[in-house]
């Protein structure tokens, strides 16, 4: 395939990944956030296919298939199933007023992440798009640390992993076996999370457990 077209496709998917991350920052509803992480995983899978055409490494195609099946379909389905079990947890409480500030902080993270990456971490040594996973990593931390809903935090964790998958494929494309293992471990992880959340439903009747004074200090 044409090298210019591949580079443009790679840029397009990078932008889609960042836009999906900013969309998640602006959500207080759980359902669309899960759908957004599914979309983001598909975008990253598509990027792996583009990278395959650039490098010819067939492992990237396997990685794309595993990522789209596990992180694009399976895990979001399990999470949406949990949402149905917790109807009253469809919208995170207390996040509404903070959404505009979170979006602004998210945009600052994207610009700041690009600046730090290009000027400090890896100055001009590799593709400028390599700063996208770094910005995505910062956005995922923002999502994890600013949310109280367990499924929102889980979405942040998946986004963090997406960032590392993206970085791995971009800067070390010959390491997909390790990354494939990471994705497969997610299947076990999501079973585990499902079990803990089910227990949480029985005990707390919500996905936003209160601050327990026994667990402070």
């Amino acid at each position: 395939m044409n090298a210019t077209l591949l580079a443009e496709l790679s840029g397009l998917f990078g932008i889609l990944v960042i836009l999906s991350a900013l969309y998640m920052q602006g959500q207080s509803f759980v359902d669309p956030t899960i759908r957004a992480i599914s979309f983001q995983s598909f975008a990253i899978s598509a990027l792996f296919v583009v990278l395959y055409f650039q490098s010819g490494d067939i492992d990237l195609v396997y990685l794309a298939v595993i990522t789209s099946v596990v992180r694009g379909i399976l895990i979001p389905r399990v999470m949406l199933f949990q949402v149905r079990n917790f109807k009253h947890s469809l919208r995170e409480t207390g996040t509404g007023q903070r959404i505009p500030s979170l979006i602004i902080v998210g945009i600052i993270f994207v610009i700041g992440g690009y600046a730090i990456f290009r000027s400090v971490l890896l100055p001009a040594s590799i593709d400028p798009l390599a700063s996208v996973p770094f910005a995505l990593l910062l956005l995922s931390f923002l999502l994890i640390f600013t949310r109280r809903n367990a499924l929102m935090q889980m979405t942040g964790f998946l986004e963090e992993e997406n960032a590392v998958l993206y970085a791995g494929a971009l800067i070390a494309p010959s390491i997909p076996l390790l990354v494939e293992f990471a994705v497969v471990l997610d299947v076990l992880g999501v079973v585990l999370v499902g079990v803990i959340l089910s227990a949480s439903r029985d005990v707390f009747l919500t996905l936003e457990p209160p601050e327990l004074k026994e667990l402070s200090g």
């Binding site: 367990a150 935090q153 070390a172 992880g189 949480s200 005990v203």
Partner: peptide
């Protein structure tokens, strides 16, 4: 209640942290 909340915190915080060490392995390679 406390043990379930502790299990959740353990899973989320440790898993989120370990993703950083995956990045470390990738950089090493």
């Amino acid at each position: 209640r406390t043990s379930i909340e502790a299990a959740w915190r353990y899973t989320l915080i440790v898993s989120a942290g370990l993703v950083a060490s995956l990045l470390s392995v990738i950089l090493l390679y």
